[in-house]
Design a protein around this nucleic acid. Structure first.
Lengths: 153, 153
DNA sequence: TAAGACATGATATATCGTATCATTAACTTT
DNA sequence: AAAGTTAATGATACGATATATCATGTCTTA
């Protein structure tokens, strides 16, 4: 069973449990993110969809579908890049730490990593000292991936 | 001497040293950011400019001016909010740690804080372990400011 | 003062995203 | 199975952010 079909399988079970529907279109959009292995914008996903499934989808639908997938924690939105990635832990069963994203500024490759809780706690404390409240400790970091670091633009 | 004119004064000296020109328009845009005390988009700045100085400026010029001010480290771009803030350390003489931004999701208030170098080093190590290279350790964190935390929407 | 560099104006267009209303598909209940 | 309800999608319009490009203006310096 491929990684992708395994993830789709898990997504389906997840939706069944949560009483939501993983429709064909939603599955297709998720497939696009899983296949592409990088962050895609809603419009890029619409293009991918058209090419992959020979069927056009309006970008608005893609936005709605992404919002749904995000609410089910199957997809993460990268606010820094205005793009979306499939959650790299779809198929895991265990609970996860807050996701942290490394975004390659060159090729949009994205790596999702975990970060020691102590580091996040330190961060929270720093923020609290400034009188602010940390809403989301989901960090998004400007990076270069291994390949792009080797052969800079 | 007000905080703002002090900052402007410093900016002028800074540009003289770096051999660049702090034109009237550039000074006006910087003034806008200093006065507003929060993050503004390029278009919001164009509006502010028009009201404050009774003179219209095309948004394109604002973008160019912001790019200039950023290259001189007088202004920071917040990629999360697509807005811009004046560097809160314009008037300081000492070298600074990498700036970290706390962005209030409600009212766009922005606080610029420093973060212990050890924390950033830990972060860098985490990133390196994932095979990535941290390009910019400038974090932008989704927060609530003190006021908005008290009276949530 | 003429030449070149730098700064700005003006226009068009790309990209990301939201709002709104109409339509279709899917579940539910009897 | 038919009617009614809810959920999902299509379609259109629009707003905001941002870039590309070419023309024009303004300093600077020899």
């Amino acid at each position: 069973m491929s990684k992708i079909s395994k993830a789709l399988d898990h997504a389906e079970k997840h939706c069944k449990v949560s009483g939501t529907r993983l429709t064909e279109k939603r599955k297709h959009v998720l497939t696009g993110l899983l296949k592409s292995q990088k962050a895609l914008s809603a419009y890029e996903l619409a293009d991918f969809y058209r090419n992959e499934f020979n069927e056009s989808v309006p970008p608005m639908s893609v936005y709605r579908i992404l919002a749904f997938l995000e609410s089910e924690n199957l997809v993460h939105k990268l606010h820094l890049a205005n793009k979306y990635v499939a959650c790299s832990h779809i198929s895991c069963d265990h609970a996860h730490e807050v996701p942290q994203f490394l975004i390659c500024d060159e090729c949009s490759a994205v790596k999702e990593i975990g970060i020691k809780k102590t580091l996040i706690d330190t961060l929270k404390r720093n923020v609290a000292q400034a009188g602010y409240l940390l809403k989301s400790p989901q960090l998004e970091l400007h990076c270069l991936c291994q390949d792009c670091a080797k052969q800079p633009a």
